[in-house]
Amino acid sequence: MTKYALTHLEQLEHESIQIIREVAAEFERPVMLYSIGKDSGVMLRLAQKAFAPARIPFKILHINTTWKFKEMITFRDQMVADLKLDFDEWINLEGKKDGINPFVHGTQRYTHVMKTEGLKQALNAGQYDAAFGGARRDEEKSRAKERVFSFRDRFHQWDPKNQRPELWNLFNCRVHKGESIRVFPISNWTELDVWLYIHKEQLPVVPLYFAKARPVVRRGNAWIMVDDERLPLQPDEQPEMRMVRFRTLGCYPLTGAIDSTADTLPKIIEEMLRSRDSERQGRVIDFDEAGSMEQKKREGYF
């Protein structure tokens, strides 16, 4: 390559920084949604890069469904302390009061109340007019058509037929009061790009991504980790210790682990490259019905 050329990772990085800065410059109350996962970690690093040597000029917000892996919360609190983030957590207290949980109410209702409704409550409470999310277009088919700046009406709804054309890197940042934009600065990154970047930057990630002996039970095609005593075990279920890791992190009852011995970043990348399954395979929520992600997005999910 010539002297004045960028590698694809550098190019992605510079493009994402441009997007993040544009939001900070044009919106009154932006916020960055942090889900603790690897994509969020990359997004957070990009935000640091966008404003260095200054601090990240907006709040970092976590929608806590109360069913996250314990290690995720520990990791999150460490990141907040290490990076001195302006951090906020939101829990849907109504949902918590009603005892909404994925076992009794089903994954769809649980996700709707604790994630989608919780998110909407948090965005309304903060009067945020722009919210960064770490979604990537390669994750799922309906995401492939998502804009980088995804317009939401005042009910946070996404109308796939009424999205603004997005040309060059000229983003239309205009919204009326109550309306908002979901911004996806790493839209063009793939799962592989994310891991290559984590490797290049030596970014910290939640230890759950690395293989380790963990207590799990078999449910359908997935290993579900017994992260705390809230996981109701069937009479015939006996947790066993297995070498497993997670390709994607969410709520522990909804996130399946895979058998793996990959305990370093290069090994994770190697395993992913040799894999025959996509990363969302471990996520229970997308398998509920055809077009399920599209449906959730229309309702206001990320």
């Binding site: 277009r137 390669d138 088919k141 309906s142 995401r143 492939a144 058509k145 796939p160 037929k161 999205q163 839209s187 063009n188 793939t190 592989l192 055809a290 077009g291 599209e294």
Partner: peptide
């Protein structure tokens, strides 16, 4: 590559879809 339910049912592509490979 035809992602959205609406267009699967209509059998046409109604929006720009982005795909990635290396």
């Amino acid at each position: 590559v035809d992602g959205l339910q609406a267009e699967r049912e209509q059998g046409i592509t109604i929006d720009v879809a982005y795909r990635y490979f290396a």
